[in-house]
Design a protein around this nucleic acid. Structure first.
Lengths: 230, 230
DNA sequence: AGGTTTCTGACAATCGAATGACAAATCCTG
DNA sequence: CAGGATTTGTCATTCGATTGTCAGAAACCT
């Protein structure tokens, strides 16, 4: 079996070291030092693991992590960081990283953890359904099939809608600004007008709310953005 | 789903704290402070995760770790330790631990890592369905002979078609992304264009659908992939 | 309070990327 | 080399995403 690993690390020397060692272990390694680059690469190819330094230029590494998770639920992510505060580790793990390693690290430990992650990803791309379901009101959303079920019946929503909904639910009870939404769901280089987001919310209200005019779950916060509550 | 966790920790106070917190998260926790005890317990019951302090009395925690791995390949192990030397971490990971956390640790981080491990262990539980024959609509597919029988008659399909069809049927009612399809049917290092997959689906619709224009079994999910339903 | 400005709701119109459809080229395998 | 299997190329079509517009609601400011 040929395992493919995407390595995102900006320090050139370290990048080469890690790449070399992983290749000696038999992995195929694609390496880049840039976050945007990484996102593009991951969209094109398939990987068994992403090793991600969160202190990279161009964009925040944690955002890269979150974005990979919005688009792609399966690929394991191993986060590297110079910060050793537990808050940072917690933040990384919350955004969907599968493991977190602090620099400087023991190379052998890295290789061991890589081995563990790569294998765990293999066991089955499909995970338990419950992990991808979310219930609120009389709605049930299945993020793996893009399906919504409620009293009105059962229907499909689109990928974009799913990503946005996921983001709002992740940040439940918090206001998410339009900028944040654009950044996370659409990316750094695309800038649709703000009407677009409104239209998505509009659609959500039609899908999920008993009375779309008096939303119980999808609230507008004037001048800022939107907020999801149960 | 009821997850069962075995907690092995000799400091009583810490043990109670962890146990309580895990239970608040909804896990069932069996706790013990003794290594031998732990081995006996794990032989009796099935667990989704073992949390193991390697500084426990009666026997060396690393030995316990090794024993568990010898007897039981699947159960994830999370090692706790006061030692923070990388050699110790490497030693633990080499003996089969899936993760390693140093005391004192952030409780939230522990809970997050527990969540990740418990889920990763699940993936393996799912058994590959051994499909031999499958019926849907007025079609009957025999995967061993690559033969399809329906009202239009009986004919052969190719190996690749069979692989793809099997994948879609295994993931019935779920959206299978193009990436997943490529990964499973073509492998990691082959990159045919997306048109290829489309053509296979096209063929399937001609084979299996009464009205290929309004497919009842092979649905497109725009921007993602395809979905099979009965 | 009243008038002004800014923001969101609502929906129609438009655009463009993803897919459908099929032909042609290439790759295999015997 | 023949013949099917697989892949690529091209154009048509469809559907989701985006923009534009306007009305009404909320905030702002004397």
């Amino acid at each position: 079996m040929n395992y493919r690993i995407l390595l995102v690390e900006d320090e050139e020397h370290l990048r080469d070291t890690i790449k070399l060692n992983l290749e000696l272990e038999g992995y195929t390694v694609i390496a880049t030092g840039d976050g945007l680059d990484a996102l593009n690469t991951i969209r094109e190819g398939r990987f068994n693991l992403v090793i991600l330094d969160i202190m990279i230029p161009t964009m925040n590494g944690l955002d890269v992590c979150e974005r990979i998770r919005l688009e792609n639920r399966d690929t394991p992510i191993l986060v590297l960081s110079a910060k050793n505060s537990s808050e940072d580790r917690v933040k990384g793990l919350k955004l969907g990283a599968n493991d977190y390693l602090t620099k400087p690290f023991n190379l052998e430990e890295l290789l061991l953890r890589v081995g563990i992650l790569v294998k765990s990803g293999l066991k089955g791309t499909e995970k338990e359904k419950d992990l991808y379901r979310y219930r609120f009101g009389d709605n049930e959303v299945d993020f793996s099939t893009y399906t919504v079920t409620n009293s009105k019946g059962s229907f499909q929503i689109t990928k974009r809608e799913t990503m946005l909904l996921k983001l709002l639910i992740e940040k439940k009870d918090q206001v998410v600004s339009r900028e944040q939404i654009l950044e996370k769901v659409w990316g750094y280089d695309v800038f649709p007008s703000t009407r677009t987001i409104d239209n998505f919310i509009l659609a959500f209200r039609k899908y999920f709310e008993q009375d779309p005019k008096n939303p119980k779950h999808l609230h507008s916060v004037r001048g800022v953005g939107y907020k999801f509550t149960d």
